[in-house]
Simulated scan of single mutants.
Amino acid sequence: MRRLAFLALACAVSAQAAAPAPAALTEPALISPKALTAATLAAARAGDRLLAAGERGTVLWSDDGGKAWQQAAVPVRAGLTALRFVDASNGWAAGHLGVILKTSDGGKTWLKQLDGLQAAQALLATASDDAGRRAAQRMVEEGADKPWFDIEAIDAHQAIAVGAYGLAMVTRDGGASWQPLPTRAANPRGLHLYGVRVVNGQWFIAGEQGLLLRSSDGGATFAALASPYKGSFFGLLASDSGALLAYGLRGSVYRSADAGNSWVKVELGTPLSLQAGMAQRGELTLLAQTGELFSSADDGLSFTRRPPPAGPLPAAGLAAAPDGAWVIASLRGTRRASPTP
């Protein structure tokens, strides 16, 4: 009873101290022809449809392989940093201000499921010790200023989002509710979490300063893995065989064939930071910050460097069109380019 009474009091106090909701959380994305050339930060594929997302809540979709784009209806104006689909209809987007969106029509329309204010309240309500409650209370007072950096969709009911300052949450009911994940013990410094993937039932998270986490019990507990690298990992990529690649700063790529127990460095021969990765038809592709691509046909053991197919550009996201073309999300909008032979 004391526990329940404390939680009720904490929620009441935090509600009074909570920062107001920014306008970007209450106003829909502006429908405008300019959105078709706006900066995009993520790309994904849903069946034969391509999608890109980026600044001010912009989500674009294309049914002709990325040659022409249309703007989706989005209920917020927060920048979006991640897209993930489980099938042609169901997917999630995540981004700034703690926003998580869900679509069930292939990305044409979106509904807001979570924002940073709600995430902070959830953290406060589930905090199990004084340190956790103090940290959650600070989040409540600071407002919806913490971004998500990646999202993984396991199926139409389960998804995992990771972001700044160690934030990690999961839904198991299609997004009707989101619960914090217990990553603080394995990430006591609250390092940023940049990538999340589920491989053969195990959950992996990568972040700054070489942070690597794994859960073998569906997110009930997490353990820190021995990291082969002290720089930041910006993403995770899994091959068809179940091999896991962690990639990030200065062209760093490390491969594990044993669920993260050991890692081997993969030489790319580039100092460029890697922004995104993609697995398609047995081939793995990594995208550098300049738009250069690195492809592997041997399960990630080695990569071949390919020049920027769309010319140098500040690249951020990567997807494959049904006809095999690459679609790159960038700060200069989306670019479509055929793979080089």
Rank of each mutant, 00 (worst) to 15 (best):
P339A: 07
T26F: 02
P180E: 03
D155S: 02
E208C: 01
L181W: 09
P188E: 10
I328E: 00
N90C: 06
A68D: 14
E283F: 11
A5E: 10
A42L: 05
A119D: 07
Q137N: 05
E152G: 10
Q70R: 10
Q275K: 12
L331W: 08
A259Q: 15
G95C: 02
A310T: 08
L9Q: 08
Q275P: 11
W203L: 04
V162E: 01
A125P: 09
D173R: 05
D130V: 09
V170R: 14
N200F: 00
F222M: 10
V59F: 03
P180C: 03
L284F: 05
W110T: 14
Q158W: 14
A238G: 04
H192Q: 12
A176W: 07
I151A: 01
I31A: 15
R306E: 14
V13W: 13
L123V: 02
V99Q: 02
A17N: 10
G106N: 03
Y194H: 14
R214Y: 00
K146A: 08
E208P: 00
V74W: 01
S62P: 15
R184D: 13
D150M: 04
V198S: 09
S89M: 10
P22G: 05
L7F: 09
W203T: 08
L41V: 03
G195L: 07
I154M: 01
F303S: 01
R250I: 12
G333T: 11
A185K: 14
M1T: 11
A23G: 14
V327I: 12
A321M: 08
G65A: 06
P20Y: 13
G277M: 15
S89R: 15
L225M: 02
L313I: 07
A136W: 13
L25P: 06
K265S: 14
L80Y: 07
G219I: 07
T285A: 12
R305E: 13
Q70I: 01
L212M: 00
K67T: 11
E142P: 02
